[in-house]
């Protein structure tokens, strides 16, 4: 028996909007730790890892570890039917091939339940070791989204370079080139507006921009985003989900053959 009650149901709606374009089908894993997902995009270049910790749910019952295969496009369609202020409860019986989403309005005057068929999905988990990163950049998520959108109108790839001067996003295309430098800026009114750069050594990596634009669909989940970079390792783009967990995107770099 599985029963997860999330008072801030809009979080789950935002999570689905953030991942549904990157991954079609995925297994949601439920355990005592929380509700999680790890899935790669179809080209095996990008990976999404989600964790919503059990403590973040108002009610969390998961009698045994369970993996539920879902089509994320269909799940997003169902969650779109929940109001932004609704409480969302996920329910599944042991051995069942369906999951039920229950939406309750805050005043309890409207209660809806939607039942979705589960799927058998061959899950392909990757072991991602803890790594020391050469540079970690934290910046406003809206600023990062703006940069990715602007650069993708010029070129297809972005070079992210971190030096003691700041973090530089560069692209080139048929019409020209673009460079955007963000300097460390911690003297802002609100901490979430700061750009903070922790650099152990300079790093420069090249990535396909279209994936970054997909990752920025997670912007509504967090005011800030963290980019963790190391030479010749996938970048980690992390959006913290307040008091609940995170959504992390991993993207393999392009490197010299």
């Amino acid at each position: 028996m599985l029963e997860l009650r999330l008072v801030q149901g809009s979080l789950l709606k935002k999570v689905l909007e953030a991942v549904k374009d990157l991954v079609n089908d995925a297994n949601f894993d439920c355990s005592a730790t929380g509700f999680s997902l790890q899935a790669m995009d179809s080209s095996h270049v990008a990976l999404v890892a989600l964790l919503l910790r059990s403590e973040g749910f108002e009610h969390y019952r998961c009698d045994r570890n369970i993996s539920m295969g879902m089509n994320l496009g269909n799940m997003a369609k169902m969650l779109k039917c929940a109001g932004n202020d609704d409480i969302i409860t996920l329910k599944a019986d042991d051995g069942s091939d369906v999951v039920t989403f229950m939406f309750e309005s805050p005043t309890q005057d409207k209660i809806a339940d939607f039942e979705m068929k589960l799927m058998d999905i061959d899950s392909e988990h990757l072991g991602i070791p803890e790594a020391e990163y050469h540079a970690i950049v934290r910046m406003p998520s809206s600023e990062f989204a703006r940069i990715c959108k602007d650069l993708s109108s010029i070129g297809d790839t972005v070079v992210i370079s971190v030096t003691k001067e700041g973090v530089k996003f560069s692209t080139r295309g048929d019409i020209g080139t673009a460079n955007i430098v963000c300097r460390q800026n911690t003297t802002v009114d609100k901490p979430e507006e700061a750009t903070v750069i922790e650099m152990n050594e300079p790093v420069s990596l090249t990535f396909a921009l279209r994936y970054f634009n997909s990752f920025t669909k997670a912007t509504p989940l967090s005011n800030t985003v963290t980019l963790s970079l190391s030479s010749e390792l996938p970048v980690v783009v992390e959006y913290k989900i307040a008091e609940m967990g995170y959504i992390r995107f991993y993207l393999a770099p392009k490197i010299e053959d």
Binding site: M40, S43, H44, V45, A46, L47, E124, H125, L126, G127, I128, P129, T157, T206, A208, L233, P234, Y250, A252, P253, K254, I255, E256, D257
Partner: peptide
């Protein structure tokens, strides 16, 4: 030129 690496070039399948 640069070639696109895959995640399996860096991380192992469990």
């Amino acid at each position: 030129g640069k070639i696109q690496k895959l995640l399996s070039d860096f991380y192992c399948h469990l």
